[in-house]
Amino acid sequence: MTRQNFIDRLRAGLAGLPTPAIADAVADYETHFDDASAAGRDEAAVAAALGDPDRLARELRAEIGLRRWEAERNPSAAANAVFAVLGLGAIDILILLPILLWVGGVLLGFYIASVALFGVGGVLMVAGPFVIHAAPVLALVLAGLGLMAGGASLTALATIGSVGCINALVWYGRLHMRLLKPALDAQGIVG
């Protein structure tokens, strides 16, 4: 593979990412080729040593997604980090997927329950005194407020759980790239 082929495939694999991120990544690999050329090494040998440009692009995309989550901590960055790790498309990610779906389902259940609690509490607090006859108004208002506070507490707990899960996923993604991938590569299993 020539230098130009390698760079073109890397650039194609990174398509969709912010332009400065693509430029940085490409510049890194251009520097590798320049250094190797100055040392008198063959382009094809350097390209072979660097590895498959498509896989390198997938790993770079994952790393950019993980870094964005560490910098921003919002739902969009969280989704980006999850898809970045899944986008590695490795064998060990398939083992992770059922766990991820189960944890995601439980967290979604908590979010739905907290929204329901908050909604029921709000309705009880506002409409309760008019709908339920002869009831102590203060008790209805306090019960509604209590349910709303319970919903808010559950939402905060579910969000802490979500942040913890995304952090664990980021840790797993890094573990995959640093430890598992070299081990799989050594056995000839392409991740």
């Binding site: 203060l138 019960a143 209590g146 506070a149 905060a156």
Partner: peptide, 24 residues
């Protein structure tokens, strides 16, 4: 911040529901 929100709202929920039950 989330832990503070969770703790404060949990205490508020327990106090409010307990008071509502006591009044009712």
């Amino acid at each position: 911040v989330l832990a503070i929100i969770a703790a404060v709202s949990f205490v508020l929920a327990v106090v409010c529901l307990g008071s509502a039950l006591a009044i009712a």
